[in-house]
């Protein structure tokens, strides 16, 4: 099967052609497979947001190309089709909700697609059900917690029935509880609804749940692979300005004190299991 998103030699320069041009991406190559959970991490300014904004044509490549289901994002005529395939959720929920009623905000996307009122209603009901927002459907987003607002934003994207949802630091504004809620729902969408997830984050404890992780630095892909293998390369992770998931930090600390633990622990459950087996 063809990849869902293909990035080939992508470079992007902000304010290209002027003397103040800033090169944000240089020769990035990447494939995103159908149904995968991809995490993109990296420090602020590493280019992860810039990269993500190419996936649904909010930005178009300065050089190279980005294909979504074989459609080039540089082609204006492809943009509507690409935006149906790739939905996007942003950092601050307050700045992406349009309506003062939850269900009407969820309907905003489908309405833009020009669907029939019946179809819109069905999609909205379904999205609300999947994210378990039934109790909030007539509430105003102003009175919801930040975590709930972000779930509404996700529902709004889900109602457009995308193949893929890109989430740009969706938990950065949230408290720990909201963060957990949002992450659980993202994982569920991936597992149960088969939606491809691209999660941009700088929380390593979120990145560990992905199938594949990419670390960006200065506009380039520096590391790529399953998360467990990545955190084994301690020096490289540190030099890229990242930290470690809590379980990996704990395991490392214990190893230094002479407790024999494997070096690819990233999940809390793993460390619990290993410690229980020690006698």
């Amino acid at each position: 099967m063809n990849p869902l998103i293909e990035v080939r030699d992508l470079s992007y320069t902000y304010r290209a052609g002027t003397s103040g041009g800033v090169k944000a991406l240089s020769r990035v190559n990447l494939e995103v497979k159908h149904g995968e959970f991809l995490a993109i991490t990296g420090q602020n300014g590493s280019g992860k947001s810039t990269l993500a904004r190419h996936f649904n044509g909010l930005l178009t490549p300065s050089e190279g190309e980005v294909l979504v289901e074989g459609l080039s994002v540089a082609e204006r005529a492809n943009i509507p089709a690409i935006r149906r395939l790739v939905g996007m959720v942003f950092q601050n929920p307050d700045n992406q909700l349009i309506s003062s009623v939850v269900e009407e905000d969820v309907a905003f996307g489908p309405e833009n697609l020009g669907l029939s009122p019946f179809e819109i209603r069905q999609r909205v009901d379904q999205a609300i059900k999947i994210l378990k927002l039934e109790n909030l459907r007539f509430e105003s987003p102003n009175y919801l917690s930040e975590g709930q607002k972000q779930l509404v934003a996700i529902a709004g994207v889900l109602a457009m029935k995308p193949s893929c949802i890109v989430l740009d630091e969706p938990t950065a504004h949230l408290d720990p509880r909201g963060r957990r809620e949002v992450l659980e729902n993202i994982r569920r969408l991936n597992r149960e609804e088969g939606i491809t997830i691209i999660l941009l984050t700088h929380f390593m404890d979120e990145a560990i749940h992905c199938d594949r992780m990419i670390v960006m630095n200065r506009g380039k892909v520096e590391m790529e692979g399953p998360p467990a293998g990545m955190f084994r390369q301690r020096d490289q992770i540190l030099s890229l300005g990242l930290n470690f998931p809590v379980a990996a930090q704990l395991a490392e600390g214990l190893r230094l004190r002479g407790i024999d633990l494997p070096d690819d622990i990233i999940h809390p459950e793993e460390i619990i299991n290993c410690l229980c087996r020690l006698k």
Binding site: N56, L58, P80, R83, R84, G87, M88, F90, N92, D94, N95, Q96, I98, E104, A107, F108, G109, P110, E111, N112, L113, G114, L115, S116, P117, I120, R121, V124, G156, V157, M160
Partner: peptide, 26 residues
């Protein structure tokens, strides 16, 4: 700043002006 972000979010949700838009509630 908020306005800028909102525009991006609306665009990402396929908003392109009033043309071709339908309504959930008639």
């Amino acid at each position: 700043k908020r306005a800028e972000e909102l525009i991006t979010a609306m665009e990402a949700r396929s908003y392109s002006g009033g043309k071709g838009r339908t309504k959930m509630k008639t």
